[in-house]
Write a protein that binds this DNA or RNA. Structure first.
Lengths: 144, 144
DNA sequence: TAAAAATAGGATAAAATTATCCGAATAATT
DNA sequence: AATTATTCGGATAATTTTATCCTATTTTTA
């Protein structure tokens, strides 16, 4: 569904958010360890998220990654997915046609419609805060 | 959402079904042309679908691909997707966790639940006949 | 029986995704 | 000012997905 890069990006964002609530920056190393991802690859993804202003990166000693505490609840899952995978998941045609709309639909266009819309809706309505709180409370997990 | 291979597989199946209603076998070349896919790659996918007994292949002159006319309405989209991409789309964890279930959910497990279920449902309920008829009636399209 | 028309399938290549390595830049601390 | 702890970013490699090529095999037809 999502690319590996996007999966890592979502998990990393949650972990960074979690720490940002406590005013702690987290290092690449700590992130990769927590979410069980390859360090260098994760670095690229974090750079990407930083370029999209979803997270903030601070170089040098005591540096690391953070998210503005007050922005966490306004960051939507869709922003993260969009930054890494683009919008083709819920905008592109299910069968890869170049043009696929009501006027010129692919064979599964209508069938997919509600699935795609529900996915889009979910991604646009879910914010980082909810996800982070579930980790904090031990209701959800970032690994295994 | 689906792999390119799966997209080609679905489109090819529809085109084969369409012709099978009229008792016509279709050649690899005709299929690839119709669905705008690379011929040799499409051949591999068709072999795969044949191995899974979703379509039937006939070698030699006047050979080609066909589907039992009376089976078309009982072939579900899920069978095609499963044969080519496996079941990870609607069974795997959205964030790639090895174990992700009610007892040990990933952060988006619950949010994804209904999307995944709707997708699964749609794939399991949609059959080849419906899709083929939409092409036949000119309501849907296989290319562009 | 030979030729022609097909698919089958192994080997290989190209492209995209995932992953690794390393030096440069930056910032805090000593 | 030097050292240390970091991220940045370019180069490269491994893996997976997508695509191509070529020969073998099968079947029909002349």
């Amino acid at each position: 569904m999502f690319s590996k890069a996007c999966e890592y990006g979502i998990k990393a964002s949650i972990f960074i958010a979690l720490n940002s609530y406590e005013g702690k920056r987290v290092s690449l190393k700590a992130i990769a360890k927590e979410i069980n991802s390859p360090e260098a690859f994760t670095a690229k993804i974090l750079q990407d998220l930083a370029r999209h202003s979803i997270i903030n990166s601070v170089k040098g000693a005591h540096g690391g990654f953070e998210i503005d505490k007050y922005a966490i609840s306004s960051i939507k899952l869709s922003q993260i997915v969009n930054a890494i995978d683009g919008d083709s998941i819920y905008k592109g045609c299910g069968l890869g046609l170049h043009t696929c709309d009501e006027d010129h639909p692919c064979p599964v266009h209508d069938k997919f419609k509600s699935v795609r819309e529900e996915l889009k809706d979910m991604l646009e309505k879910t914010n980082l805060e909810e996800l982070a709180l579930d980790i904090k409370s031990g209701v959800a997990f970032l690994r295994t």
